[in-house]
Write a protein that binds this DNA or RNA. Structure first.
Length: 265
DNA sequence: AAGCTTTCCTGAACGC
DNA sequence: TGCGTTCAGGAAAGCT
């Protein structure tokens, strides 16, 4: 499931590969994949590719941007041939140089949004703090969480608060910070927020350097897996890497959480 | 209004 | 063996 490091990995590769390339066709294979809020005049050029929250954003030579969200099983693969179009391909992009990029998505949760430039900020303002921004600090986090009645794990997953963290990294961050996922977020101390900030940035940075985590579906644009799954400490593990105790498995907000009762307080 | 639950979807894994 | 059930989960909508 693509979270910040996986989306960042894709954006960096795509920015290198398709910046300044011209698209002459976008084809939607499955209805409801593309949400079009602006007309496109073909061809147009992709001027850059960047990330905000878990969105892959194509900046274009025209007055719109393309926002792609992979949700859980979405993939963008480039370059491919016509025969790579498969039963899970929901849309594809054709470049004037003959190259093809496919958007595959087994579970059909992913979306492609064509949004006029003037509405992009409004669309993205729904989302919270970027973990690598100045605003991601103990003071802001304390302020956002002080009157909230929910567990720290669920706070970390809330994209309106902090962006980019999903179920894998939320568990890894709390394990590294030695904080129980069940702790009420309003009771996290300043000292602990400092650790959460540090561990969040560290784990996301490490994961980006390993090209993301491929647990099941995530693939880089060349269809290769990332490597950070080899460095996970609690996600989908049975025992604690520190004390060898059996990890607890609980459900929070419909999501599974693993943690060590002994090491995380 | 905040914080729950449900919904979308389909393949894999599980249980009888 | 095979069929039915459960699970996985990001984010938005619906509900209390």
């Amino acid at each position: 499931m693509p979270e910040l490091p996986e989306v960042e990995t894709i954006c960096r590769s795509l920015n290198k590969e398709i910046s300044n390339k011209e698209i002459y066709q976008i084809h939607e294979i499955r209805n409801h994949t593309i949400h079009k809020e602006h007309e496109i005049i073909f061809p147009f050029t992709i001027t850059s590719v960047y990330r905000r929250a878990k969105f892959i954003i194509f900046e274009t030579s025209q007055d719109f941007k393309i926002l792609i969200h992979l949700r859980m099983t979405g993939k963008l693969i480039y370059p491919v041939n016509e025969e790579d179009v498969n039963r899970y391909t929901r849309a594809y992009f054709k470049f004037t140089d003959g190259k093809l990029m496919i958007f595959d998505d087994v579970r059909c949760f992913g979306t492609i949004e064509i949004i006029p430039n003037q509405l992009v900020d409004k669309r993205l303002n729904l989302y919270g703090i970027e973990p690598f921004s100045q605003d991601f600090n103990k003071t802001q986090l304390k302020k956002l969480s002080s009157h909230k009645q929910l567990a720290i794990k669920q706070f970390l997953l809330d994209q309106k608060m902090i962006v980019g963290i999903g179920n894998i990294y939320a568990q890894e961050i709390l394990f590294r910070a030695k904080i129980s996922p069940l702790r009420s977020v309003s009771k996290i101390k300043m000292k602990e927020w400092v650790i959460i900030v540090q561990e969040t940035q560290k784990v996301l940075e490490e994961a980006i350097s390993k090209n993301g985590t491929s647990i099941s579906d995530f693939r880089r644009i060349d269809n290769k897996t990332g490597e950070f799954q080899n460095f996970l400490q609690v996600y989908s593990k049975k025992t604690c890497p520190l004390c060898q105790n059996e990890l607890m498995v609980i459900r929070q907000g419909g999501r599974s959480t693993r943690y060590c009762e002994k090491c995380q307080k």
